[in-house]
């Protein structure tokens, strides 16, 4: 049967249409808004092209810098811990032992919980007045008349802990699937040559695992940059501005102050940073090959 050359394109049309509708069009709207003065509270003010005005505001806005710094701190600490713990757990679960199936299932439970629900659960547990974690900390003599989420010095760490709990299983899952797919021969050869466990891990497992590790890292890096739900529910960006990451900052500007022009500019800037950093990591990976 002769196949028409246009047939595959026809089948792809719905997907293209959807992609354009939910991905490309909003992006161009965002781009357009970021170069406009658009206050939803004052529709009488004409929506005019203002060139780079919003980006100029961004450059001189200490609140945005502060939010960026908080975001980077959060991403670096949270993703580093998730990668380390995730790798350790993946190695642990790669060897068969009694009860492994049950333990693996338990480990994956946080993954199936929506971020908003995760936030609500932890919000209750960390509640400064009646949360179980706060109660335990109080009984240890810690955070008396306070709580980890209301102390500006520990609020971000509390969010990091919640994120680690939520997303480490994801890292573990990706790395574990990589480990289980590794060829057996190099390990058998290393064993015959008398390599120690550490040497096997350092010289065989890790190099063979760099792609799954990089995939896990890139996915977590991009997601951590966009964290919103958990912080919104647990601290709302506070106390003060202690957990005000860029996504919360952008939301407050765009949907509290209704300054859609400036809000779009920050969102675009965040997207730009994420793309640059991800590309850089990808280049590093390619070079190491």
């Amino acid at each position: 049967m002769k196949r028409s050359r246009s047939q595959p394109w026809i089948w792809l049309l719905p997907s293209f249409f959807l992609l354009i509708l939910v991905g490309i069009v909003p992006f161009f709207i965002l781009l357009y808004l970021s170069f406009s003065d658009y206050f939803l509270l004052y529709p009488d003010i004409p929506r005019v092209f203002v060139g780079l005005k919003n980006f100029r505001t961004l450059v001189f806005d200490p609140w945005t810098y502060n939010a960026l710094a908080t975001t980077f701190t959060f991403v670096i600490v949270a993703v580093a811990f998730e990668m380390a713990i995730g790798l350790g757990l993946a190695l642990l679960f790669s060897k068969p032992f009694k009860g492994i199936t049950l333990l693996r299932t338990i480990m994956l439970i946080p993954l199936v919980i929506a971020p908003l629900v995760t936030g609500l659960i932890w919000n209750q547990m960390l509640n400064p007045d009646f949360g179980i974690i706060t109660y335990l900390l109080h009984s240890l003599g810690l955070f008396l008349n306070s709580g980890p989420t209301i102390d500006p010095s520990t609020a971000l760490l509390s969010i990091v802990a919640v994120d680690i709990w939520h997303w480490t299983p994801f890292v573990m899952l990706i790395i574990l699937s990589g480990i289980l797919a590794l060829p057996k021969e190099p390990f058998e050869a290393a064993k015959i040559d008398g390599a120690s466990r550490w040497q096997t891990f350092r010289n065989i497992t890790l190099p063979l695992m760099r792609y799954p590790i990089m995939v896990a890292f890139l996915l977590r890096f991009m997601e951590a940059f966009k964290i919103f739900d958990e912080i919104w529910v647990i601290t709302g960006g506070g106390p003060g501005d202690a957990t005000r990451v860029v996504s919360i900052h952008t939301y407050k500007i765009a949907f509290y102050r209704w300054d859609l022009g400036y809000g779009s500019a920050i969102a675009l800037f965040l997207e730009y940073i994420t793309i640059i950093l991800c590309s850089a990591f990808y280049k590093i990976l390619q070079k190491s090959e």
Partner: peptide, 10 residues
């Protein structure tokens, strides 16, 4: 605020 629950800040 010192007479309010610590959680009042949230």
């Amino acid at each position: 605020l010192k007479y309010a629950p610590p959680g009042a800040l949230t």
